[in-house]
Design a protein around this nucleic acid. Structure first.
Length: 233
DNA sequence: ACCCAGGCGCATG
DNA sequence: CATGCGCATGGG
C-alpha cells in the first residue's frame, strides 16, 4: 500500500504529463507591480464549483481592467466587479467575498502577502477558514499554490477517485483523505519534492477524473492506470 | 432540454 | 453529524 500512492503518481504523470496548473503571467505582474499570489487567491475563489474555462474569462476581464491588486479591489465598485467576473458564475457572492478578502489582507497585513504567508501553516489555514467564502479546499489551494505551503488539496474528484481505488483505509472525510496522501507520500519522496509533488498530484487527479474510462466504466483494458488498479484489486 | 464544473454557507432533522 | 438547497455561467 505504501508505494501505491507513489506508483499512482508515476502512472498519472507518465500518462498525462505536467498539467501546468495555475500558470501566472509573471511578466504582466512585473509590469503592473502586482503580486501574482493574489491572482491565485482570486482564481481559487472564482473556480469554486465552476469550470476553469469560465474562470479564465473572468480573470481576463480583471486583467484588462487592472483589477488583480488589493488596492484595485479596495476601490472598485461592487457592481463593476460583478460585471467583470460574471462569466465565472455565482458573481454576486464571489464579488462580495473578493472585496472582503482584499480589505482583510489590507487591514491585517497592510496588503503584504509575503508577511501573510510567512506565518505557520495551520495558523494560516484557520485564518483562511474564518473568512466568508473560503472552505477547506479553497484554503488549502491558496496555501499550496499561492503560499507554497505543503498541504495536499482534496476536492470532490479526489474523494470520488479514492472510493474507486483500493484505498480502504481512508474514510470519506476531507481531513482523513488529506492525511492519508500526505502520510503515504512522506515516506517515499524527498522533503524537497513535497510541495511540487502535491501541486502536480492534485492537478493529475483532476485530469484523471475527466478521463473517459474513469467516468464510464469501472476499468478499461488498455490504459496503464486501469492496468495498475486491476493488478491491485 | 439536461448535466456538470478545480465549493461554500446556511437551514433542517 | 449529515443531507439538501441556493448560488449562475458556459460547454458538452
Amino acid at each position: 500500500m505504501a508505494t501505491f500512492v507513489k506508483d499512482l503518481y508515476e502512472i498519472l504523470f507518465n500518462t498525462f504529463g505536467n498539467q501546468y496548473w495555475w500558470p501566472v503571467d509573471t511578466h504582466y505582474h512585473l509590469k503592473q507591480k502586482s503580486d501574482p499570489r493574489f491572482e491565485i487567491i482570486i482564481g481559487a475563489i472564482l473556480t469554486q464549483n465552476t469550470a476553469w474555462t469560465n474562470v479564465e474569462k473572468a480573470l481576463e476581464n480583471l486583467k484588462k481592467n487592472r483589477a488583480f491588486t488589493i488596492p484595485a479591489l479596495l476601490c472598485i465598485q461592487e457592481k463593476t466587479l460583478r460585471t467583470l467576473i460574471q462569466p465565472s458564475g455565482f458573481f454576486n457572492q464571489k464579488a462580495q467575498r473578493l472585496m472582503f478578502i482584499a480589505s482583510y489582507l489590507q487591514k491585517q497585513y497592510n496588503g503584504d502577502l509575503q508577511e501573510f504567508f510567512s506565518q505557520d501553516t495551520s495558523d494560516i489555514h484557520q485564518e483562511l477558514l474564518s473568512l466568508q467564502g473560503i472552505g477547506p479546499e479553497t484554503a488549502d489551494s491558496i496555501l499550496l499554490y499561492a503560499g507554497n505551503h505543503p498541504v495536499f488539496v482534496v476536492d470532490a474528484y479526489t474523494k470520488r477517485i479514492c472510493r474507486r481505488l483500493p484505498l480502504s483505509t481512508t474514510s470519506d472525510s476531507y481531513d482523513d483523505i488529506q492525511h492519508f496522501f500526505e502520510h503515504e507520500l512522506s515516506s517515499c519522496i524527498p522533503e524537497k519534492e513535497r510541495i511540487p509533488t502535491y501541486k502536480e498530484y492534485h492537478a493529475l487527479l483532476v485530469r484523471l477524473a475527466k478521463q473517459n474510462c474513469w467516468k464510464k466504466k469501472p476499468s478499461c483494458d488498455d490504459c496503464p492506470l486501469c492496468t495498475l488498479c486491476e493488478k491491485l484489486l
